[in-house]
Design a protein around this nucleic acid. Structure first.
Lengths: 214, 214
DNA sequence: CGATGTGAATAATTTCACAGCG
DNA sequence: CGCTGTGAAATTATTCACATCG
């Protein structure tokens, strides 16, 4: 059934890899002169136990050098590869409310390797406008353009009532991964990757913690 | 050391409670006529196993009725109480870039019980403007106003370079819980609640999944 | 020596499966 | 009967602790 189960890296590990990598890139940018980093240093910086740093990194192969640590640039490159960041991903953004707009103009994406190449909305006052050089198009062209450009990743930033039908349409058009920012649980077929950012979950978690501790 | 460790509800459970509650509220709004819901129905809807739904809900006390299920309105009320949502929380928003603006004008918050009562930025072109009736103020007044209004929750939506110092200032001013939207790991003292929303983590998780499965 | 990599121990979370009860 | 609530098993994740090796 599962073809690709050799050495599946745990989901939590993947999340931490992003955080490790962010710090490694910061170090490289700083050019501190230090070429190596130990698991304890990396752990301290990212607030994880050094043992889990080592176990996480051991998923990537034998990268460390005893007594020295991990070579920063090499480790960084390996993590990027595992995260699929050795290429740039074309991304479709659906919905240009304030949140969508925030994403559309956010420059950080491209640095990470995600390039918004298509933007859709169904507000006729927005259609035709450009954000960072990308024209906002009518949502009725989603299927055509996603297919044409072979886009694999989409960000859904539409109102929650429209989120599921948007997802369905995207998937029918060939999208393989969805980042859902609408505050609703999406249902997607097997094989489609889905991650959600849910503000309410985070906020209510905080308020719970506040009342829990008196 | 820990005064409030009687019946601490697991963090994952708390996250799911938000999702259960969202569906329950939807049902109440629909007024479908059905007053009860079973763990299987709730689980199916929220994509969780019915056993974990039952275990989660059992943390709240003995709420279910055998053969019938859980009374929707009662369950909803209990969850809200546990999540600290039986009152409205005043929230401070720091940073009115696109992301901050998206949050400032987002009407969903208030419905959840979070009211943005103070907005700060240090861009003098933004200071003085109003968003949804709340004036944007100079960040130098953070301490004064947070103390004055006794605000406990803050959302940080400033550029990542300013995030840590903003957090430090907020905490010194009496903030007890922070939702961090800046793409950086914050360090906060014990007792301060911190949750982060990290777009990069989510996106890179997706790209990893795409390359993992071919 | 001093760091990694990893078995083994521990902890946390989820799932199974069923007793118990209205 | 049909559901909840929950022991017990299974699974997953983290931490300890140390053999190993450059």
């Amino acid at each position: 059934m599962n073809a690709a189960v050799k050495n599946r890296i745990p989901g939590r590990t993947i999340n931490r890899l992003t955080l490790y990598k962010r710090y490694l890139e910061y170090l490289l940018e700083m050019d501190s002169g230090n070429n190596y980093i130990t698991s304890s240093e990396l752990g301290e910086e990212t607030h994880f136990n050094s043992a889990i740093v080592r176990r996480d990194l051991s998923c990537l192969g034998q990268l460390g050098q005893r007594k020295v640590g991990y070579k920063i640039d090499e480790l960084c490159k390996t993590i990027n590869k595992v995260l699929g960041l050795d290429k740039t991903w074309d991304v479709a953004l659906i919905g240009v409310g304030n949140l969508g707009k925030a994403l559309a103009v956010y420059r950080g994406f491209e640095k990470l390797g995600f390039k918004i190449v298509a933007i859709f909305d169904n507000d006729r006052f927005k259609i035709g406008k450009k954000w960072k050089g990308v024209k906002i198009q009518d949502m009725k062209y989603i299927s055509k353009i996603v297919k044409q450009k072979r886009i694999k990743i989409a960000i859904i930033a539409v109102p929650f009532k429209a989120a599921q039908e948007t997802a369905d349409l995207l998937i029918k058009s060939g999208i393989k991964a969805i980042l859902n920012l609408a505050p609703t649980r999406l249902t997607v077929p097997d094989g489609i990757k889905l991650r959600s950012i849910d503000l309410a979950v985070k906020l209510e978690n905080l308020s719970h913690l506040l009342v829990r501790d008196r």
